[in-house]
């Protein structure tokens, strides 16, 4: 057989081709929409997923741990002193406190005292064990006492001091005896006394002088929150 003959024979093999019906049918099947849901398909996908997770164990372990960790911290935000998750809440709060500037620290620390009083209220209203919450309240009050001595602008902390008086009243109304928070009381007294002395050295109208006299009376009665309100009114 010559090369030419062989090539002619080869070209004749072009007639080997699939049937047109099969070509059309195969194309139709190719572009058919995949079934939306079948049990077997679902099981196959599940097994594929298992294999994927197995093959990427370290990565999934890290992600899983991170999810658990974040989840725990999330749940911890609703915990109160005495709960097992409360230490996590404290860690979060301490982390946030690091970011607070020195100028905002007095207000932040008073906010913490109010939070602990809210915790105490929650526990007391559910007849729970109030002792851990009282300890936390006292610790936070000690912390706030240190920082409010340095407070430059009393207007910024006045709101929190007012809340403090209200929250203490609520706790007392529930029959909870928290004991003295002497350091915080002294710090507040020093702060208000300083403000009164400053006002005494300032020229005041008759009306303002009367208001200052009221503030002094409230201060003498150790009603520091009300005294502070009165002082703030004089400035207006």
């Amino acid at each position: 057989m010559t090369d030419k003959n062989l090539i002619e024979q080869l070209r004749a093999l072009k007639e080997i081709k699939p049937s047109q019906e099969w070509v059309v049918l195969t194309k139709e099947n190719l572009f058919k929409e995949e079934p939306k849901f079948t049990l077997i398909g679902f099981i196959k996908e599940l097994r594929r997923g298992e294999r994927f997770v197995f093959n990427h164990k370290p990565a999934f372990a890290a992600v899983f741990s991170a999810v658990i960790f974040i989840g725990l911290f999330g749940f911890a935000q609703n915990s109160v002193p005495g709960d097992s998750l409360f230490p996590l809440k404290k860690i979060t709060e301490k982390g946030q406190a690091v970011l607070v500037s020195g100028k905002d620290k007095p207000r932040h620390d008073l906010e913490m005292v109010n939070k602990r009083l809210n915790d105490l209220t929650k526990i007391a209203s559910l007849n729970g064990d109030v002792q851990p919450a009282i300890r936390e309240y006292k610790n936070s009050a000690e912390e706030a006492a240190k920082s409010i001595k340095e407070a430059g602008n009393i207007e910024e902390i006045a709101g929190e001091i007012k809340k403090l008086a209200e929250n203490e009243a609520i706790v007392r109304s529930l029959g909870v005896e928290t004991g003295e928070t002497e350091e915080l009381e002294n710090a507040l007294a020093e702060l208000i006394e300083r403000e009164i002395k400053t006002l005494e050295r300032t020229f005041l109208t008759v009306e303002e002088s009367e208001m200052l006299a009221v503030a002094k009376e409230l201060f003498e009665k150790e009603e520091y929150s009300k005294a502070l309100e009165q002082i703030l009114e004089i400035g207006k």
Binding site: Q9, A12, E15, I16, K17, S19
Partner: peptide, 12 residues
């Protein structure tokens, strides 16, 4: 079909 016809030819 043509495919089968091809094989009918012994040279092919």
């Amino acid at each position: 079909n043509m495919e089968e016809a091809v094989f009918m030819n012994s040279d092919l």
